[in-house]
Design a protein around this nucleic acid. Structure first.
Length: 410
RNA sequence: GCCGGGGUGGGGUAGCUGGUUAUCCUAGGGGACUGUGGAUCCCCCGACCCGGGUUCGAAUCUCGGCCCCGGCCCCA
């Protein structure tokens, strides 16, 4: 038996229906906010990703050489491709651009709960806006999407400015390290690190920063900083919209291209990999040869979302099973077509089963049975049976179709 | 890359201190039932992850690999 590649999954129809149902909710919501779908290639030049994230990520990517000897990579994320696309063909579109994508990504990592080597992201990029309101829109949209998906998510919202303000005396490498410790809330690691460079005086203020849950607590730590007004405006918008969230100025997001507002979302039932959403304000376009366009975006880990949702059933479509005796087999195709033409799912028996066996099958898989035998064929009628109630009647075909159509939920 | 637990029909399992034809449930196909139901009864289909070793004999013991689950690291 051939095995499927490690960290990948097969999806049976039940699961695909669940995934598509959730996906449809996400698309619908993003569309209502004015976001439109974009799509980029499944693979890109390797450099696109190393420019953004450094050569260190090569070990965690699917990298290959194409027949022309070019270094390529399966996309490990979609923000960089989208910004590449923006720079190469959308620079002149009226700003801001509101784009979303739903697509699969590939990372060569050790699989664990909610982490696969092929996984799907639903992401949003808001390009060319840099105001408290654009920051707030991204956060509110993220919340709206997670609600649409049915996930009770714990949203953490922060801003990098306060942390950078406190760390401004340190050299860049030390700043990055300190931020990584803070992001993990690893004060046991942070303290000796800062002591090692003679700055353990910062530890108490950093600790207070990471624990600040209100703006008063935040600014008590940082004092006046240039971003105070902007952070205040973001928070005001979130609060006026009754958003439930946690202020968290310990978020560092591990990447240096984030420029200001950052946020993350955590969902239950996920074990060690419980972050389902991450994003913030960033600047990337200049890396791909464009102007330094400010952007803001986030991505939702779709597979984690589905794991967190657990066992939910997608609504099943109304199905009609056409059950025939030998005399009705040919007419069955016409009858099935009449239902299909009205948008109703209709299936025929293909196995020469006797009527009893067809009915038994229909009872498991369908909502209605349409019985076609010698009598129906002779009189040009059908027998429509409601498999829930057990009621049945002999009617003309279009009456039967209309009756079933009336039962399809809209 | 590291640590722990696993891998038996499509799904779930018993066996696993080596020994006839590998257990049971479920799903699937057929029949009892060529004009009507998910019940019942009967039949059928279908599995020891792969490879080496020990042995008269391996699902069982052993080694390696692959994969799965959970965790560490990482997490763009």
């Amino acid at each position: 038996m051939l095995q499927r590649p490690r960290g990948t999954r097969d999806f049976l129809p039940d699961e695909m229906e669940r995934r598509r149902a959730v996906e449809a909710n996400l698309r619908e919501k993003a569309t209502r906010w004015g976001y439109r779908e974009v799509c980029t290639p499944e693979f890109e030049e390797l450099e696109l990703f190393t420019i953004r994230s450094g050569a260190g990520i090569i070990g965690e990517m699917y990298v290959f050489e194409d027949k022309g000897g070019r270094k390529m990579a399966l996309r490990p994320e979609i923000t960089a491709p989208v910004l590449r696309m923006f720079v190469s063909e959308a620079k002149v579109l009226p700003k801001p651009l509101r784009w979303y994508y739903f697509a699969d990504c590939f990372r060569y990592e050790r699989p664990q709960k909610g982490r696969y080597r092929q996984f799907w992201q639903f992401g949003v990029e808001l390009i060319g806006a840099d105001t408290p309101r654009s920051d707030a829109e991204a956060i509110l949209l993220a919340d709206d999407l997670l609600r649409a998906a049915g996930i009770p998510c714990d949203l953490h919202v922060g801003h990098l400015a306060p942390m950078k303000h406190l760390l401004q005396g340190l050299e860049l490498g030390a700043q990055a390290k300190a931020m990584a410790f803070l992001d993990k809330r690893d004060f046991d690691g942070l303290t000796p690190f800062l002591a090692g460079i003679g700055r353990d005086d910062l530890v108490p203020r950093l600790r207070d920063l990471a624990h600040a849950r209100t703006l008063d607590e935040l600014f008590a730590v940082t004092g006046e900083i240039p971003e105070k007004k902007r952070i205040g405006e973001i928070v005001e918008i979130l609060d006026k919209n009754s958003l439930v969230y946690t202020l968290d100025f310990g978020i560092a997001r591990g990447l240096d291209y984030y420029t200001g507002m950052v946020f993350e979302g955590f969902a239950p039932n996920l074990g060690a990999e419980n972050q389902v959403l991450g994003g913030g304000a960033y600047r990337l376009a200049h890396l791909f040869g464009g102007d330094d366009v400010p952007s803001c975006g986030f991505a939702i880990g779709f597979d984690r979302l589905m794991v967190s949702l657990g066992e939910v059933k997608a609504d099943r479509k109304v199905r009609v099973a056409i059950c025939t005796t030998e005399e009705g087999r040919i007419r069955g195709f016409e009858v099935a077509k009449a239902f299909r033409d009205r948008g109703i799912c209709a299936e025929l028996d293909l196995l020469d089963r006797n009527l009893g066996a067809q009915m038994a099958h229909a009872a498991k898989a369908a909502d209605f049975a349409v019985i076609l035998g010698q009598r129906e064929v002779a009189t040009g009628t059908v027998t429509l049976k409601d498999l829930q109630s057990g009621e049945q009647k002999v009617t003309p075909l279009d009456t039967a179709v209309a009756e079933v159509a009336a039962r399809v939920p809209r």
